[in-house]
Simulated scan of single mutants.
Amino acid sequence: MNFGSDNQAGVSPRILHTLVEAASGIQSAYGNDEWSQRAEHMLGEAFGTPVKVFFVTTGTAANCLALSTIAQPWNAVVCHHMAHIAVDENSAPALFTGGASLLPMATDNGKISADDLAAFVARTPHDAPHNMVISGLSISQVTENGLVYQPQEIAALAAQAHALGLRVHMDGARLANAIAALQCHPGDITWRAGVDVLSLGASKNGALMAEAVVFFDPALAQNFSLRIKRSGQLVSKSRSIGAQFCAWLEDGHWMDLARHANAMASKLSAALVATPGVRLSWPTQANEVFVLMPITLYEQLRAQGVRCSDWYASSVPAGTVVEAGEVVVRFVTSWSSTDEEIAALMALVHSEQRKAA
């Protein structure tokens, strides 16, 4: 019963088959192979606009290299206080940007609004050269609390950011899940809404190890190949990543995988909140389920081999009280999650509750 993270799931058979196919023969290196070039073209078709794409091996590299194009060492990037780049990337953002800082901001609803951004920037000291100069905004889609930004929310936020002279980066580690949840065109929540550069992850949605930095503004991509090389992310056999993206995108496979993961999360969420003593922390909008449950139940589930994660008590919505004896728990479903896994988990939950009665 693995609900620990979608990056723990295996590889889609279709993607694995294509990877094996790409492994034979001779191809040019360093992104000049046919697979990588085809993948860049397919990404442009998927988003409905010409894009410049660079493939890397990890989400950390994708995020932090993207940030390096919108932030100089004396700059700062605004993000949500629970953003992955602020909580789970160690000091990589500072390393890749040469010293730029993150300015995390807390909000009541788990997302950043245009008004939130304007107010935050207005109250941040900006007496150059003594203070950092804010140059960018980074948002996560899906957010770290499992929420999905609506197209109009991103458009308003990006418009405000641009009016303030900021570039907009999107951490799209679970972008496919957001697109599937919104049933929208990929362009509607990225470049059409004002996103300048996107970190696009396939690893959490069926790929083996495949991340991309997608530039909607080609000017930001200037000298990016040098950044890739300098960071140790210039992959010689780049076809191994390009081929995965080709298989991921072909015939809408990425959407099929994401829709399945989202559907599994919806089923799991409904089953958990129907259980006495368990309540939702955040609405289930994509493939993550955040609940508050008795810590004893969480410990029993973990002891029985269930993979899930206790989460930050500070991550709950404003006004939500984590009671004594409660813990915030995150369950994540993936492309390979099954009804049988959910049924087995719930049978275990009910069994433990009967024991405690």
Rank of each mutant, 00 (worst) to 15 (best):
T107Y: 08
F215A: 02
A212K: 05
I134W: 10
T124L: 07
I179E: 00
A176R: 01
L157W: 11
S236N: 08
D108K: 13
A118H: 09
M170A: 12
I228D: 04
G165R: 14
P218N: 02
D127C: 06
D108Y: 14
D196N: 11
H185M: 11
I154Y: 04
L220A: 10
D115M: 11
S203P: 07
G194A: 08
Q150D: 07
A212Q: 04
T107C: 09
S138T: 10
P218S: 02
N223R: 13
Q244S: 08
G146I: 05
G201M: 00
Q183V: 00
K237S: 10
L117Y: 10
D115N: 09
L208G: 01
S135W: 03
P151C: 13
S238I: 00
A178E: 03
G136P: 07
V121Y: 12
L164S: 06
F224W: 05
S135I: 08
L137C: 06
T190P: 11
A128G: 11
G201R: 06
Q160P: 06
M209I: 12
G172I: 00
I134R: 07
F216M: 08
A119M: 13
S135G: 09
A119H: 07
P129G: 04
N109S: 11
A128L: 15
D127P: 01
V197L: 05
V142R: 05
D116A: 00
V142C: 13
Q222P: 06
V168A: 04
L182F: 12
L157P: 05
Q152H: 14
Q222H: 12
Q183E: 15
G136R: 07
V197M: 09
L147Y: 12
S199K: 03
V142Q: 02
A243E: 00
S203Q: 04
A180S: 13
L137W: 11
G146Y: 03
I154S: 03
N205R: 03
L200T: 01
H130P: 05
V168F: 05
V197C: 06
I241E: 02
A202N: 03
A202Y: 00
S113C: 08
D196P: 00
N177S: 11
L147T: 02
V142A: 09
V195P: 12
G187W: 04
A114E: 07
A106P: 07
G172F: 01
Q233S: 13
F216N: 08
A159F: 03
A176W: 04
A212P: 05
W191M: 08
R227G: 00
R123A: 09
S113V: 08
E144W: 13
A178K: 00
T143V: 10
V168C: 05
I228W: 05
I241Y: 14
Q233F: 01
V197Y: 10
L226H: 11
W191C: 03
A118K: 15
R167G: 07
A106K: 13
T124E: 14
G232F: 01
D127F: 13
H130N: 14
A128C: 12
V133L: 13
V121C: 12
A119Q: 15
